[in-house]
Design a protein around this nucleic acid. Structure first.
Lengths: 157, 157
DNA sequence: TATTGTTATACTCTATAACTATA
DNA sequence: TATAGTTATAGAGTATAACAATA
């Protein structure tokens, strides 16, 4: 039924796309988390690297770069910043002294929970308006999309 | 029930956040559309501006900047690029000659549907794995989030 | 004086590629 | 020769602030 006969305002064609709504909400949620991290002088990439090293002790820089979908050059700079904060250590691998094994310092390990709390708070701030069932359903739909398209690179922005 | 008794692998704490899954999927969907646009030498910001001017003929640069959540300086560069492609015209307002009224050229209007088709194809590519009901539900949940948090800035990246 | 839009400048982030050290 | 990581360089994108023209 055309708009002429219904009298409806023609919709903005952008709004017709699920990708539009996904980006609209995602930008807000991620943007406000990035701002919160920035107040602590931390970038999202640094935060992701911190988490990934915590999860995968003694990972190499190359593996981390792959997991984060970044080049080795870019990762190198991220690691520089974390090391400057004394939250991360690079030690040459005994097996192959070209490779750098990454590990959190005591100080890095100690601070990580505070950042996780910030992530929890940000998630809660946005998604608590949904019921538990709705949150479950949203997660199911997003995971179905991630699975179907084999999306695996960790978002770092 | 702790993991020790269930034998489950402790989940990556990042995965616990809905914001994580939202960003994971959103980055892929928007990234692949941005790549498609880039093959046509067009940025997402230019594409959004093109659509917005089409929807709001004779809008001023300042209003467009507000709608897109960009500064006037940034918008000015986006408009320069669109004008260089002969898709957009700036004409001084008769009421206030400081203001620039924006309009698509004939050529801009003619090309827009092709870009809309690209957006449709991208949306379809990702979301056709969901059933019609699931797509409706995903849209409902995202719009509920957008409404609840009064998210209105058009995503331009 | 205030506002519209442009321009100059700087900054962040990232990729590319040259480079060093090791294998 | 090939590979791990670093560094130098360049490019995109954007914000900030100084600016010119107009109100």
């Amino acid at each position: 039924m055309p708009n002429a006969s219904t009298g409806k305002i023609p919709p903005n064609p952008l709004h017709a796309h699920l990708g539009y709504w996904l980006r609209l909400v995602s930008n807000q949620v991620s943007g406000s988390f990035a701002s919160a991290l920035q107040e602590r002088q931390l970038s999202v990439a640094e935060w992701v690297a911190l988490n990934h090293v915590e999860m995968h002790p003694d990972i190499t820089a190359a593996s981390l770069a792959d997991a984060m979908g970044m080049t080795r050059g870019a990762i190198s700079k991220v690691l520089d910043k974390l090391q400057a904060k004394h939250w991360l250590l690079r030690t040459p691998s005994p097996q192959d002294s070209r490779a750098q094994l990454l590990a959190l310092t005591r100080s890095g390990k100690r601070l990580l929970p505070a950042f996780t709390d910030m992530a929890d708070a940000n998630d809660n701030r946005y998604f608590s308006v949904l019921s538990a069932n709705e949150r479950r359903e949203l997660r199911r739909l997003l995971q179905k999309l991630a699975d179907a398209h084999r999306i695996s690179a960790i978002p770092v922005d």
